[in-house]
């Protein structure tokens, strides 16, 4: 192995390789996958001089620790966290030089859920269908990081950005999700549609990369029977038999048989990726543009 590599010292609760995912294969049952907070992933690439679609690491709640084998530029963004290099504090949201053999520690999220670690050259694991993303639903792409994993790095393509700290939105204290109704709002009672867009929900701890699950009032079906399986989109608000809505995130199934009452605007999904369990959620109905 060359020294363009990164050893994983502490993998954390769930750290995966992510890029822009593998859209275009849904008709074969392949989820799109990709970084949940895409602006944060693109930011760490910009900060480290990578192309926007280079593969980065996505942590979950408790960060990770990495030891590059050669000098690299890294950047950490998304969920704010403490960053150290060989125990010395380093910047979050800005390019950081990490000498070969030094230990980069990405601490637990202070707020939000997912921090993104960009490394100059990008994570260069073998792509699957054009993407290096780990897809937790279908198992495509590299398995989640484990302690001792060694990840290959690509060759740096650009010069890192010269900024002190890049501005980023704070993780949401309240998650406001703008939705357009349908395609299956007519499968629910009018009361259920009103409930969705007027009552308070909370992010359930059972949320993951497949879907943001909701605790809150159940949505009642207005008609009996089963909906034949149909194609699902990112941001679909699907309502399983228990009536609690689920917002589909990047690793969502490509088809599903529970009715979709509404669809969240894509611009609101990065914030959804950073909403801690327990975060209050409001769905706001908007007109289709």
């Amino acid at each position: 192995m060359t020294d363009r590599a990164l050893a994983v010292v502490r993998a954390g609760a769930l750290t995966t390789v992510q890029d822009r995912g593998r859209p275009g294969h849904a008709h074969l049952g392949v989820p799109r996958s990709g970084a949940l907070d895409r602006p944060a992933a693109e930011l760490v690439n910009r900060l480290t001089g990578n192309q926007p679609g280079a593969a980065v690491l996505e942590t979950t709640l408790d960060g990770c620790a990495l030891r590059p084998r050669s000098d690299v530029t890294v950047a950490v963004a998304g969920a704010p966290c403490r960053v150290t290099v060989d125990s010395r504090p380093a910047a979050w949201g800005a390019p950081v030089r990490v000498p070969g053999g030094a230990l980069l520690d990405v601490g637990p999220a202070v707020a939000g859920v997912r921090s993104y670690v960009g490394v100059s050259g990008g994570i260069a694991v073998e792509p699957v269908l054009g993407s290096r993303s780990t897809d937790l639903l279908s198992g495509l792409g590299p398995v989640p990081l484990t302690d001792g994993t060694v990840l290959p790095l690509g060759r740096p393509t650009g010069v890192h950005a010269r900024v002190d700290v890049a501005p980023q939105p704070a993780p949401p204290a309240e998650l406001v999700l703008r939705v357009t109704l349908g395609p299956r709002e007519d499968w629910f009672t009018p009361e259920a549609v009103r409930t969705l867009v007027s009552r308070a929900y909370r992010v359930s701890p059972a949320s993951n990369r497949i879907g943001l699950r909701m605790d809150g009032p159940a949505l009642e079906r207005g008609r009996p029977g089963e909906l034949p399986s149909e194609g699902m989109v990112l941001g679909a608000v699907q309502v399983p038999p228990d009536g609690r809505p689920v917002v589909f995130l990047a690793d969502h199934p490509t088809t599903g048989g529970y009715p979709v009452i509404a669809v969240v605007r894509p611009a609101d999904l990065p914030a959804a990726a950073q909403a801690m369990p327990g975060t209050p959620v409001r769905f706001v109905a908007v007109r289709r543009r």
Binding site: P23, G24, A26, H27, P228, S229, E230, G231, T254, T255
Partner: peptide, 15 residues
Amino acid sequence: AREIVPAARTVLLDG
């Protein structure tokens, strides 16, 4: 269209 996804009684056009 980025995705053309057939299913039981539908075809989804996405993107």
